[in-house]
Design a protein around this nucleic acid. Structure first.
Lengths: 338, 338
DNA sequence: AATTCTTATGTTATCGATAACAATCAATGT
DNA sequence: ACATTGATTGTTATCGATAACATAAGAATT
């Protein structure tokens, strides 16, 4: 069990100064090609591994971008995170990933913990946060990007879409197909802020069409599982048997609802139409396929990543003007509402 | 845009030494309760945020545990990661998460990148890695834990199960139901090492029962989507119409296969039984429910996390004996093979 | 009262890299 | 031949916290 090698060890063995070794490990530093090769060879020989923490400490640039998503186990957020990570990689930035369990207080805790690591930027999911979270982020003096929402009073930058507005298209589509008695399933708790926004959008859209938005079914706190979607559908069928279409807070609950219909012998879309949200894989594979909204999760991640790179490495002049990028969600009509 | 406050600033304002401030931020350090409160108050007032990087640098303890999974977008690995993260948290350890895209060379790259951050331990998914990966990890002199497999020649510790062996139970169950012409869907590429192990296990189990393991359907490289499962099923039905049961490399492909049967009018389980792997949510919700194997992903994560904590913080004496923890996967019989 | 023990706090050196500046040497221009 | 330039390498100070040791003052012990 010997001590881990440092640059000093490499420098000694190579007969050069530590600075020269440091340069050999950089891309554009001025070291003769001979020396560089020799040094890297010796480093490999000694099993030397560059110490990012030491470099980070000296330069005060960690290369970290903190990313907080509600849950690891969600394909939408995973897609956003993967695309974000990919966009950051060429700039030498690394994602520090945390999850909040859909709870703004847990989010606050993680933000506080992450800020101690001195990330160069931070990406949040959603536009609702505790006052302390906002204050901590304001003080941190790093780019803050809120995603998956279009908050009215953003902390900093925004890459997202309006969850409420997406419901206008969807309700419009269902109404155009002649259906009038529409229900909304989910979005009834404080925890599910995006779901609640969608529900508000549903109510607004129904009123816009002169319809009564009184078929609102609860499902409880997120994450909302397929099972919960099935249970809620069962209640809907019991309490509002004449419903003509149901919009679910996500594709997962929509799929659960779909299976419940299969079990109950309710035909989709003949007896009832079903729509979801998120364009999860399952929406395109299940039978019938699901009508859904594709919020382009990867596009959000890529866009946020590019924004961060341009803010941190692009030498932007107007660092002070917050950027607001709107990603347009897309209605995708499937067999479940044909 | 003012300079970020350091401990020195807090110390000056509080009229104490930096060391006292440092102690005030620790749990068990000897500072009078009065002083501590006063210091923390001043810190808050100044907007001081503890600098983990500096502390890390001095103590040479980063508090990072590197975790590499094949893909962010996979509920099984997400469950393992979440449970791991939860188990590490009380010990003050934080997950540094990366993904390999199911590619051992990408894995090698991430391992190399992560080691520069000096994680205190590293968790890999699977038991197959490049020679260089193994060498890098050996040199790093930190606990290495391979998961989701039981490699014959592990690098260090292991928390997992034998993918091949799980197929014995499953084949046994299907054979016991009177089915003889079984097919396996997936596991045909180098990329899908765990899938390939399952396929090998399938072949071995078939031979054990004196049956011919010649119905092997390709699906390509992971991640294997529902869609690919459906496509593969379509080929199976075309080429081996008399197949009585099919085992799919995962629940996602199994579900795709299930939907394909629905489209083709093939009844499940009457005409053909279907089984998956992974006990994903969908297996319990779809209709019919899927027969599957639950590898207890969260249990793997929890167990790996506890192992790491005991290795790093528990002051284990026998640090040198590699630990091998076997998690027993569980057969879950659903309607798809009734 | 003298000694020992405790508790609270201060002092100094240090972790491993890099920025900034200095120095050396060969090549080039006049 | 001499000044100038450019390429390469070296020297020194430093980032912000903490370990280890030192010290001071009051409490407990004899």
């Amino acid at each position: 069990m010997q001590r881990i090698a440092t640059m000093k060890d490499v420098a000694q063995k190579a007969g050069v100064s530590v600075m020269t070794v440091s340069r050999a490990f950089k891309q554009h530093a001025s070291v003769s090609e001979d020396t560089r090769k020799r040094i890297l060879g010796i480093a490999e020989e000694l099993g030397y591994v560059f110490d990012s923490n030491a470099a980070t400490f000296r330069t005060q640039k960690t290369g970290f971008v903190a990313v907080i998503i509600p849950s690891l186990n969600n394909a939408n957020f995973a897609d956003t995170t993967a695309a974000l990570s990919t966009a950051l990689k060429p700039a030498g930035l690394q994602v520090l990933l945390g999850y909040s369990n859909y709870d703004v207080h847990e989010e606050e805790e993680i933000v506080e913990q992450f800020l101690r690591r001195r990330p160069e930027a931070i990406v949040l999911t959603g536009g609702r946060h505790t006052g302390r979270t906002r204050e901590l982020l304001r003080r941190a003096q790093i780019p803050v990007i809120e995603t998956w929402d279009l908050p009215e009073d953003p902390i900093g930058h925004v890459v997202g879409f309006s969850n409420a507005t997406t419901m206008h298209d969807l309700v419009g589509h269902l109404v155009a197909s002649g259906r009038k008695r529409l229900a909304f399933l989910g979005g009834d708790t404080n925890g599910d802020t995006r779901g609640a926004d969608r529900r508000r959008g549903f109510v607004a859209a129904m009123k816009y069409h002169g319809l009564s938005p009184d078929r609102l079914i609860s499902v409880g706190d997120p994450p909302i599982s397929m099972r919960e979607g099935a249970d809620a559908m069962s209640r809907l069928l019991r309490d509002h048997a004449d419903t003509e279409a149901v919009i679910c807070v996500s594709d997962l609950s929509a799929f659960g609802a779909l299976t419940e219909c299969a079990r109950k012998g309710v035909r989709v879309p003949e007896d009832i139409a079903i729509a979801g949200f998120g364009a999860y894989d399952i929406s395109a594979v299940c039978f019938p396929t699901l009508t859904t909204i594709d919020p382009h999760p990867a596009e959000i991640g890529r866009s946020a990543g590019e924004l961060i790179v341009s803010l941190l490495r692009g030498g932007r002049s107007g660092k002070n003007d917050p950027v607001r990028i709107e990603i347009a969600p897309q209605l995708s009509v499937g067999g479940s509402s044909a």
